[in-house]
Simulated scan of single mutants.
Amino acid sequence: MLARSFQPVPAPLPVQRPVLHTTMKLLLNAWSTEYYVRLADPRPYTFSQAYYATYFSFKALLASVGAIGEGKELLTEAAIRGKVSAWESMGMYRDTNLPKGFFEELALYSPLLVPQPVVEDPKAEYERLLRIVETVCASHERYILQKFGEAQYLRIVEAAPLHSQDTFLLERTNRILLNSTLS
């Protein structure tokens, strides 16, 4: 079962257009990257794409609360890592079966890190990273849905390329919507 967000939002809040636009742009980047992760066999670049899928998802979550966006200073990877640690300690990823320090594990696959780690069993590592990407992104999307409301969130989903909508995104969106109506 997916974890509930760490800060429930009782009703959708009015969203400023730049916040919505920045969040949408970053979610579209996250979904496109995740789509390619899911398509690929476990190849070296697939692992760095898993890192970027969650990285863009983190940034979308930050944009949704106005922490980054137009006219705001962009956060470094280290600053995002700090925010993730804070969210972990506040329970955002509780009940998700994510390993503690999962972002640190994903950061090992950052293309900026040279050399890349040696993977003993690429297929098993690929499956593990895919579960982390799915869980992290779903947690962030659930919070964004609560923040923006169902109508705004569905507009963002509808802006995604059709190949993404027809695969994992439709299934995850339905699961998140169902979960939000049950809570």
Rank of each mutant, 00 (worst) to 15 (best):
N97D: 14
M24K: 13
T23D: 05
L178M: 10
T54W: 03
T46E: 10
L106A: 10
Q7M: 15
T173H: 01
R172P: 01
L170G: 14
E73C: 15
A3N: 07
P111Q: 15
S85I: 07
P44S: 08
Y36W: 08
I68M: 12
D121W: 07
L129F: 02
A78V: 12
A3Q: 04
T46K: 06
P99D: 14
D95S: 15
V119F: 05
E141N: 11
N29I: 14
S180V: 06
K147V: 00
N97H: 15
L106N: 08
F58W: 11
V136W: 12
E141W: 14
L26F: 04
V19N: 06
L98M: 12
T76D: 09
A159R: 05
Y51A: 00
R38W: 01
S48V: 13
L170M: 13
A159T: 08
P42S: 02
A67T: 09
A3H: 03
S183E: 15
K83M: 07
A60M: 08
F47V: 06
S89F: 08
H21G: 07
L177E: 06
A3F: 04
P115H: 02
R128W: 01
V157C: 02
K72W: 06
R43L: 09
Q116N: 07
Y51I: 00
E171W: 11
V136S: 12
